[in-house]
Design a protein around this nucleic acid. Structure first.
Lengths: 251, 251
DNA sequence: CGCCTTCTTGAATATTATCAAAGAACGTGG
DNA sequence: CCACGTTCTTTGATAATATTCAAGAAGGCG
């Protein structure tokens, strides 16, 4: 549309990792042809619903979660612009989680059935999508490690580092400060803590001079030290594309 | 090889969900052409190692885990016969976790580079593998919910139900009893608990008449009640294949 | 039979949750 | 632009849950 190199943030994100053919860019563009806006806190879809759509995030933050029957909530993943929402649910005919907008968001929904074109026509793009989904899984494993074996303070440190690393992929000039449009209750529901203890632990991190807060922005003061403390790996900065089917022999 | 319908447990598992063409069965057979045995407790691979292999589990149980530098361990996933190990790591050029055999195991290793043939030649089989990986991710999300928002007893109930449901896919006649060849320390490292508290909580479940133990076998006495208590979903019994590219137009 | 690992049990301790209330920030409508 | 209501955050006191430490019992294996 515009004269920009990448009109789409999905294409921008993916070509960060590998070269895309024009044909592949075309397939991706198809996934982003529709747009849908949601207001803050609105539920994009509920769980246990016939979910045949995936979504590309165009702008805004969202998160998916599962409820227990008694009201406990586990937030599963926070989504940012350029993310694809819905790969896990591809294996089921109903959604397995709820999806809620953290603020105003703009999404590009597309039916999962449309993936079959990509699967049939572009092995290379398929491999790329597979890798994205695989990486999401590793990021989830990191979170699992945090919930299973880290203290509250460590979990928060991990969460801040992870968010920072993720935002850096699309926002290259991000240094040490970023906005965090989540409530402490939401952060707690992601990290398996209560909102009260999130408040206390963040206060502690600030007292100790590791982070700084103003409004809902966070500044990470001692990134290296925090990374060492939680044994942090950046899963966002590379992707192994060496095994991908070669282009030039499509179809 | 033999006169059985499915000489391979991977083929057996996959054709449980969808019909495979002979060609597709051929591709899968290629992945299982090599065999490698490991003795109990041996480490199949360590993390941060150039990992270009995936594995099909032929027999035995294994688990993957990540260590923190101070010795804390988080077990990420327990593998059983018919499972494919390594999809998450496909996105990276190094392994992101360690893999250890719980007892004697037999594995079929194959280089991930071999997947490119499947990606290029069989869109349908690719979609099936994608779905398996996606399903693993949902199972992981269930575990995340357990670690983040459930009590010790609930986590154990969830773990037992999950293990039972998974074993039922390959062992159709499994009713309410199964062997559990993991130590309580390992179960604790999976569920984010100490071995001591695993012992106490299992004892509690038994006292309450929900389960029964003898040796290292478990019998689930009140499956329906336990399922209700932890809001359990069986992720293993179906797979949505409706969106798969149609066969008959391969290549 | 004896050793080694795993499991159980109990007491003391630590971490995090719960409850409650006040203070700060934010958005909305007048 | 201010007042008000709402939501979010902070703080303190108390309670619950799980950990740690330690020692003894049980079970498997040579």
């Amino acid at each position: 549309m515009s004269g920009e190199r990448h009109p789409s943030c999905l294409v921008a994100k993916l070509s960060y990792y590998t070269d895309l053919s024009e044909e592949d860019e075309g397939y991706l563009a198809m996934l982003e042809k529709d747009e849908q806006k949601f207001s803050a806190s609105s539920v994009v879809y509920a769980s246990e619903v016939r979910g045949q759509n995936l979504y590309v995030v165009k702008s805004g933050w969202l998160f998916s979660y599962i409820m227990l029957t008694d009201g406990r909530r586990q937030i599963l993943k926070v989504y940012h612009p350029g993310d694809v929402i819905g790969f896990p649910d591809i294996a089921f005919d109903r959604t397995t989680s709820d999806l809620q907008a953290a603020g105003e968001v703009c999404l590009c929904p597309f039916p999962k059935k449309e993936l079959d074109v990509i699967f049939s026509k572009s092995p290379r793009l398929t491999a790329l999508l597979f890798s994205l989904s695989a990486r999401d899984q590793v990021i989830l494993l990191d979170l699992l490690r945090a919930l299973g074996r880290m203290s509250a303070i460590e979990r928060l440190a991990y969460f801040l580092l992870d968010t920072q690393a993720k935002l850096r992929v699309t926002c290259h000039d991000l240094t040490d400060t970023f906005r965090l449009p989540l409530t402490q209750t939401e952060i707690g529901d992601l990290l398996g803590l209560t909102n009260v203890y999130v408040s206390k632990s963040l206060g502690r991190l600030e007292e100790d001079g590791l982070i700084e807060r103003k409004q809902n922005a966070v500044r990470i003061l001692k990134e290296a030290e925090l990374r060492r403390q939680v044994d942090f790996f950046d899963r966002y900065n590379t992707l192994d594309t060496s095994w991908f089917p070669q282009p030039g022999q499509p179809r």
